[in-house]
Write a protein that binds this DNA or RNA. Sequence first.
DNA 1: CAGTATCCTGTCCGATACTG
DNA 2: CAGTATCGGACAGGATACTG
Lengths: 161, 161
Amino acid sequence: MRRTSFAESECPIANSLELVGEWWSMLILRDAFDGHTRFDDFQRSLGIAPNMLTRRLAALVDAGLLEKRPYQQRPPRYEYVLTARGRDFRPVLLALYAWGDRHLTAEGRNLVLVDRATGEEVSPVLVDRATGRPLNEIDAVFTAGPDAGPRMRDRYRVEPG
Amino acid sequence: MRRTSFAESECPIANSLELVGEWWSMLILRDAFDGHTRFDDFQRSLGIAPNMLTRRLAALVDAGLLEKRPYQQRPPRYEYVLTARGRDFRPVLLALYAWGDRHLTAEGRNLVLVDRATGEEVSPVLVDRATGRPLNEIDAVFTAGPDAGPRMRDRYRVEPG
DNA sequence: CAGTATCCTGTCCGATACTG
DNA sequence: CAGTATCGGACAGGATACTG
């Protein structure tokens, strides 16, 4: 997508989407979290065309979410593993999973998140780190930050209580 | 995207992406959370072409995230407001925001999430609803659910401890 | 103002064939 | 096995003109 408007380039959501917004990117990340690391591995799991996989993998490496590292010399072979930045992306996928799980129940529940240690189901909720309060109980709004440009300030001006 | 492979159609993440995976969809939702409701409103904010806005709006209405409702009779005019299902999508956007805010700091912080009541910054973290434990401290894995098909079971078989 | 209708381009993506 | 190269189609998305 071409970012013509201000709202996209200065917004962290839009910027994130810029890196992982393509269809396959998040699905590749999902697979990475499931432990997949190799080209063929991803390809079989996703049913993605090889050229697309090459592109998306390269893009994710470029964006710093995946690291391409050799696991064998001759012939040169690489595996793709999550970087710290990539692992930190997990909440997005979990939020997406949780939403789909709650609302797209047409075909039943075919994927459940569990704690491997206890076997108990894990149900992800967003809370405020400081207070522990669930975010849906907070009237949380975006406001212009310290480095916001004029348009951003205009759009997100602080309107108290 | 055409969903040829199993992994897409049976996975809640993929299914969610199917509804909101296009570039503009999530940005439109972001704007909806920021209080935008009207066509022109979205268009100015996003800098999106009108035909695309029509398409994406219709898709979101179709997917049940937005409701199109008349606010004036002659000429007929509509506003687009979040449904319950749409409002429940917010954690995804907040997770995306949080990730971008942490990792895409090139241009500084220009958007901050605050509690409107207190003015304090809110920092969204994912925790387990039952135990309150942060998800990054849990070894959480996906497993095949009760309604999973054979391929899903094969891929996500339960491997204890 | 709130859209609809057309036309055009870019590119995402799939299919297939090929290589060390 | 792990990709690269090439081809073609579908559609997202932009630009612009038009309407009540």
